[in-house]
């Protein structure tokens, strides 16, 4: 028995030493931090950089939360990561991208590159018959909804919003549906839940706002055809080219900005979008390859 033990133990030891000896492969010195597959922030980041998930440099860690990425980057000198703009704190440094600093203003006006608008599309002519749709759109434009949006880490684009009050009369329409982008979906679901609760508290009525997926393309198609009351898209939507139905109005719900974060010891303040894409696809890249020299090891 003992011999078998010894054999197993020494075998394991040999494997362990072998594995250790093979040692470092050709990886560069950039510690690349990602979110896990399935994260909305990761989906948005990859989409905006035009990187396919399968070619992504998975880097040193794929962490399950924004705060884990920030903690990781804060403790790792050679790190780079990304996080929703609203959640970045002072323990890390957010880089400018192509010379534009990530702020609420640059995200809202679209000059910051790693950002995208969340657009809603609805048929203007239907508002008169559909009082629930009318009320929900009014709620989405209100300060109440914009506060929820800001709390979720998105950038509000409505400047002079007022607070919202549910109409005293009961709604004649009790069910509407929003479909499209799965990135907008979670935020929309949250806003719909809050709105449903507000209506329930105000006049005791049960209304239902269903949020379904399908992607931005589906959202645009559904808005054009009138299949669902609200179409959702997580990219810029243009009247005429995307929205062919001339009754459909486009409303920007908010903007989603993603900050590129590095360790505070990193001397860089700006990164070119091309270099960022290189970092996230090429795992052999070093900081010096993109012109960032660390002063002391």
């Amino acid at each position: 028995m003992k011999k078998i033990f010894m054999a197993i133990a020494s075998g394991l030891l040999a494997v362990g030493i072998g594995v250790a000896a093979v040692g470092c492969s050709g990886a560069g010195d950039i510690s690349v931090y990602n979110r896990e597959s399935g994260s909305g922030t990761r989906d948005a980041f990859l989409e905006l950089l035009g990187i396919d998930e399968a070619e992504l440099n998975t880097g040193v860690a794929q962490l399950a939360s924004t705060s884990a990425v920030i903690t990781g980057v804060a403790g790792d000198k050679k790190a780079i990561g990304y996080a929703s703009l609203g959640s970045v704190d002072s323990t890390v440094k957010a880089l400018s991208v192509d010379g534009v600093a990530p702020t609420e203003e640059t995200v809202a006006d679209g000059t910051y590159k790693i950002a995208r608008p969340f657009e809603l599309m609805y048929d203007e002519t239907k508002l008169a018959q559909n009082d629930l749709l009318d009320a929900f759109i009014a709620y989405l434009k209100s300060a109440d909804a914009q506060q929820v949006i800001a709390e979720e880490g998105y950038v509000s684009v409505v400047s002079d919003a007022t607070s919202y009050a549910v109409p005293t009369e009961a709604f004649t329409v009790t069910e509407i549906e929003a479909s499209g982008s799965t990135s907008v979906g979670p935020l929309m679901t949250m806003l719909a839940d809050k709105f449903e609760t507000m209506v329930k508290e105000a006049n005791g009525q049960d209304v239902s706002i269903t949020v379904s997926g399908g992607g931005s393309g589906q959202g645009i198609a559904d808005a054009n055809s009138g299949k669902t009351e609200i179409g959702m898209a997580s990219k810029e939507v243009k009247k005429g080219t995307d929205v062919t139905n001339e009754n459909v109005t486009i409303l920007q719900l908010c903007a989603d900005g993603i900050a590129v974060i590095v360790n505070k010891a990193n001397p860089a303040t700006d990164i070119a979008l091309d270099n960022l894409k290189k970092i996230y696809t090429d795992n052999a890249l070093n900081w010096s390859d993109i012109g960032v020299e660390f002063s002391e090891e």
Binding site: G16, V19, A20, V22, G23, C24, S25, E36, T58, G59, V60, A61, Q62, L63, A64, A68
Partner: peptide, 18 residues
């Protein structure tokens, strides 16, 4: 483990890999 393994679908070639 979820906190410390790195969660990367990588077959580690050394002790230093996630």
């Amino acid at each position: 483990i979820t906190l410390i393994c790195g969660n990367i679908d990588n077959i580690p070639a050394s002790l230093a890999e996630p």
